[in-house]
Design a binder for these strands. Structure first.
Lengths: 202, 202
DNA sequence: GTCTATAATGAGATAGAC
DNA sequence: GTCTATCTCATTATAGAC
């Protein structure tokens, strides 16, 4: 494990921390658990990073920098309407959550922790700005494909979309009710399509 | 502080714990912080309750048992349409969050913690069942007043409403953008009204 | 029944040998 | 530069004096 630059160790620790938080929760993400996950000795931790909170900042920024919704855009290709596009994208997102629920839980735990922690309280705003930007990209992709006229500003609709996906996720994490989640998605898709005036397809 | 029944101490500790979590976060809700808030000696803690997790169970159940949305129903009285009713109720809810953001953060922190904790993992499902029931009551109240026909089942709409309020809250907690939250509420109100076929008012 | 004093554990951080 | 060994502190929980 010798001869690894400190910046690389920092990144490796951030990835390890995210893995631990996803698997076992934020409370279990002690410095010891993180270095064990990364296969490093404990002392490497404070060699690469000043404090645990500083590493958690890295973790949030790591998450924010990730592609995220990019995987959902291809789903839109099959859609013949905004309603269908919304349903496919939301179902694809829920499938992503279902495949790795811990990852989404980790996001929520990190956000709440950051809000409470003096040195990190600026992070959630960045995080959600990124989410809103990603949702805007997804809506733009749908718009480019189906050419609807929207009756509301795109950033407002993007925020609504993010809020709904957050709420959908929280409820599903709580009760794991797949059928109810699917019905929520259907309703949300109808609601989103309601803001679009769609052109008649040739 | 003598002669207080154990069950009463338990309840007092649960209330104190909720106060600490709301003010300082779940991580700060140590047994010491909780008994200090309750004005009890430390040993009273384990006299009244077996463990910290067991008290957190009480806290969640305390929260679930609370009235919650009852305060929102009166707001509906002024509404002349479903759209207006939805806007008033959601704005009233956001105002409630804004008045005590820590309380809502506490809810999210407790839910996430419970999901991760073996003895408490059944609680979030109860919690959300309660939320959904409360949303149903609110929708019933609006229905009783405005007599719309709904194009979707009430429980599904209730779940959508809860999901949206959760997402609205998370986004607002993250970026504190009042104007953006207000626009989200406007859009959500339109979307909800879209599921109602309203009778013409006399 | 109640609470003081303390045990036992595990945390973040660091000094100093290699 | 790297990591072993340790320090210091805060935590939950409890034993035993009142």
């Amino acid at each position: 494990m010798s001869r690894i630059p400190a910046t690389e160790r920092r990144a490796a620790l951030a990835h390890a921390a995210l893995a631990v938080i996803s698997r076992d929760g934020l409370a279990a993400a002690t410095t010891r658990a993180i270095v064990a996950e990364a296969g490093m000795p404990l002392a490497s931790f404070h060699y690469a990073v000043a404090s645990r909170d500083e590493l958690l900042r890295d973790v949030v920024e790591l998450v924010v920098a990730e592609e995220g919704v990019a995987a959902l855009a291809p789903l839109l290709a099959k859609a013949g309407s905004i309603r269908e596009a919304a349903k496919l994208a939301l179902s694809g997102y829920l499938e992503f959550v279902r495949r790795d629920p811990g990852h989404e839980q980790a996001m929520f735990e990190l956000t709440q922790y950051a809000l409470r922690t003096p040195g990190l309280s600026d992070l959630p705003a960045e995080q959600y700005a990124r989410y809103h930007a990603l949702a805007t990209e997804l809506l733009d992709a749908a718009t480019a494909q189906l050419h609807p006229d929207w009756s509301v500003p795109m950033p407002d609709l993007a925020r609504l979309l993010v809020s709904f996906t957050d709420g959908l996720t929280l409820a599903w994490l709580a009760d794991r009710d797949d059928a109810a989640a699917a019905r929520s998605i259907d309703l949300a898709a109808v609601a989103i399509a309601g803001f679009a005036r769609e052109k008649v397809r040739a």
